[in-house]
Amino acid sequence: MNIAAQHIVDMLSVGGLYALMALGIGLIFGIMRLVNFAHGELVMIGGYAIWLIADLPGPLIVVLSLAIVAIFALAMERIAFRPLRDASPATLLVAAFAVSYFLQNLAMLIFGARPKPFTFADGLIENVVVFGLRVPQLQILSLVLTILALAGLALFLKRTRMGVQMRAAAQDFRMARLVGIPANRIIALAFLVSGILAWVVSLIYAAQIGQLSPTMGLQPVIIGFVATVIGGLGSLTGAAIGGFVVGCLSVGLQIMLPGDLREFREAFLFAALLLVLLVRPAGIVATSALKERV
C-alpha cells in the first residue's frame, strides 16, 4: 500500500515536470507553429545561471537567474525566429534545431564539456515523513513548485487579458491579429512565459540529476516534445495531459520492467508512445492545428 502510494507520488512529480516542459513547448507551437528545440537549452542556461551566482543571497539568485533565462528566451525569438516568422514549420524546426545546437556548443566552449556538480540546498536530500510516507524534501519542493507553476499558468491564461489574447492567438493566429491582438507583443510574451516555465524546470531538474552539462537540456526537451505530440500538438490542455501520461508511463516502466530489460526503458517508453500515436495519430486532444487549411 505504502509502496503504491510512493509510486503515485513519483508519477505525479515526474509527470508534473514533463507537463511543464510540454507546456513551454506547446505554447510556442500553438502560436507560431514553431517546434522549439531550443527550449531544452533554456533549461540548461537556467541551471548554469544558478550555478554561476550561487553565492548571492537566495532571493537575488531567484530574480537574477530568472532574468537571465528570460533574456535568452526573448533574444532567441528576436534574433532567430522573428525573421523566419512566415517560413514553413519545417524551416522553423530546423532553425530551432540550429539555435539549440548553437547554445549547447557555446556552453561547451565557455564551461567545458565536463559535467559540473550542482548542489542546490544540501538539506533537501533528507527524507521527511508525510502521511506515513518517507519522501525526500526535494520531491516535495518539486511537487509544490510544479503545482504553483501549473496553477499560475492556468490563472494567467484564463483570467488575465494577456492570457486570453494568448489563447486566442494559439487557436487561430491570423484571426487573432484581425481582431487587433498585437502579434509581436503576444509572441514575445509567449517566449517570456515559456522561459519562466523552463526556469522552473531547470531548478527542479538540475537539483534532481545533481549536475550541469551543456547537453542536459536534451533529455527533457525530447520528452517534452513527445508529450506535446501525444497530448495533441496545438492544445495546451493536451500538452499538460501528455506530460502526465509520459511521466506515468516512464515511472510505470521503471517499476514493471524486469532488471535486465530496465536499461532498455527509453526504448520501451518511446515504442509505447509510437503505439499511442498509431491509435490516435492526432494525439489525445485532437485540434485543427495540424490540418491543412484549404
Binding site: V35, P89, A267, F270, L274, L278, P281, L290
Partner: peptide, 18 residues
C-alpha cells in the same frame, strides 16, 4: 507515415532514441 508532417518528424526522433 500515418502522422502529419510535424508530428511525423517528432516521431522519427522517437525512432532514433529507440
Amino acid at each position: 507515415m500515418r502522422l502529419s508532417g510535424i508530428a511525423a518528424s517528432i516521431g522519427t526522433f522517437a525512432m532514433l532514441v529507440i
